Simulated scan of single mutants.
Amino acid sequence: MSQLFGETADTYHEARPGYPVEVADAIRAYHGGAPDTLVEVGAGTGLATTALLTLGAATTCVEPDARMARVLARRFPGVAVVTASFERWSPPAGGVAALACAMAWHWLDPATRNQRARDALRPGGTLAVLGHRYAYVEAAQAEAIRAAFSSADPADRGDRPDGWFHDDIADSGCFTDLRLSRFRRAVPLDTAAYLRLVDTFSPQLRRPPELRRRVRAAVGAAVDGFGGTVVLDLRTTLVLARRPA
Rank of each mutant, 00 (worst) to 15 (best):
I145T: 05
A148L: 08
L121Q: 00
E143A: 04
I145R: 07
Y136R: 05
P123A: 10
Y134K: 00
A140T: 13
L130S: 03
R160K: 14
G125C: 10
G124P: 02
A142E: 15
A144V: 07
R122I: 14
R146F: 06
D162Y: 01
A147V: 02
A152V: 12
E143N: 09
F165H: 01
A155G: 12
P154D: 11
R122G: 05
L130P: 03
D156Q: 10
G158M: 13
F149H: 06
P123E: 07
A140C: 00
F165V: 05
D119W: 00
R157T: 10
A140Y: 02
R160W: 10
A155E: 14
R157L: 11
V137I: 12
G125T: 04
D168S: 04
A147H: 01
G124C: 12
T126Y: 06
R157S: 09
D168C: 04
R118G: 06
R133I: 02
R146V: 01
G125A: 09
G158W: 05
A142C: 01
W164V: 09
Q141Y: 04
D119G: 02
V137S: 08
V129P: 02
F149P: 03
H166M: 04
P123Y: 06
H132F: 09
G158L: 12
P161I: 09
H166D: 14
A128K: 08
A128H: 02
P123L: 02
R133S: 15
L121C: 00
P154T: 08
H132V: 09
A144D: 12
D162P: 08
E138V: 09
H166L: 15
D168L: 00
A144S: 12
H132G: 10
G163F: 00
L130K: 01
A120I: 11
Y134C: 06
L130G: 00
D162L: 15
D119A: 15
D156I: 11
A148T: 05
L121P: 03
R122Y: 07
A152M: 12
G163N: 12
Q141S: 15
D167A: 15
I145N: 05
Y136N: 00
P154V: 04
E138M: 03
A135Y: 05
S151K: 11
D168G: 01
A128F: 03
D168K: 02
H132D: 14
A140G: 06
A120V: 11
D156F: 13
